[in-house]
Amino acid sequence: MAEQYRLSLYAWESEAPSGVLSIRVCGEQFEAHPSGALYHGTERTLIVSDLHLEQGAALAARGHLIPPYDTHSTLDRLARVIAHFDPVRVISLGDSFHDVGVAERLSEEALTAIARLQAGREWYWIAGNHDPDLPASLHGHVVPSLQLGSLRYVHEPVAGPAVQEVAGHLHPAARVSRRGRTVRRKCFITDSRRLVMPAFGAYTGGLNVLDRAFAPLFASSDFTVWVLGRDDVYPVTKRYLQPDR
C-alpha cells in the first residue's frame, strides 16, 4: 500500500543499501539496526549495550523461574548482527552480565558461543554497574571506557548535557501514539552530541525517554529517537512521543 513511501533503512538480515538515513553524533556516522545494535561503518565497529546475560538465572535465584533461554537467545541475535556487519571491533557497552555471581556459572555452550564471536575481532567489555568485574573465563579487554575518534564509549552517561559520548545503562524506550493506537518499543536517543543505546538483552525492558532520568542529559530537549521496529528503525521527533503512566 504505502510501499513507495516506506523508509527502507535496514531490513533485518537483508542486503539493504546502507546510508539511506544515518545517525550522526559529533560528526561521526552510525547505522542503527532494528536489533538494537549500532554500527560505525568507517571504524568497522559494532556497539551493543546492556546484554544482561544470565538475567533469567539471576531472577530464578530470587524465586522467579522464568525461562533459562535468554542468554542463548541474546547471543544468537548478537551472532546474527555480527554476521551481518562483519565488524573488526565489538564494544559491549556495560551490563553485559545481569549479575556477575550468577554469571560465574555460565554454561560451556555459552562460553564457546562468546569465544566464537570474539575470534578474529577486537573485543571490549566496558564495565557496568551490574558487572564491575567479569567472569574470569572470558576473553576480551575489560575497560571502564573507550575513546574512539571524537567519541567516548561508556556505560553510564556522564551527568549533564553536551558530552561527546555513546552510552547505555538507561534502556531507553519510546511510546509513539497515532490515531488511537500506541506502540511502545526500545529506541536509540540522540541530540547529535550524545547517543544512548537501547538494551540488547532478551529480557531487558525499557525506560520511557520522557522520564526525568533523561532530562539532564538532553537539556536542549531537542532530541530524536530511533525506534526499533520489526524490520526497520524509525526516526521520530519528540512531539510524537507519549509518557508512560
Partner: peptide, 15 residues
C-alpha cells in the same frame, strides 16, 4: 499489522 503501521506513518509524516 497495525503496530508497524503506527511507526511507519509517524516516520512518514516526519519526512
Amino acid at each position: 499489522e497495525a503496530q508497524e503501521d503506527v511507526l511507519r506513518e509517524t516516520a512518514e509524516q516526519l519526512i
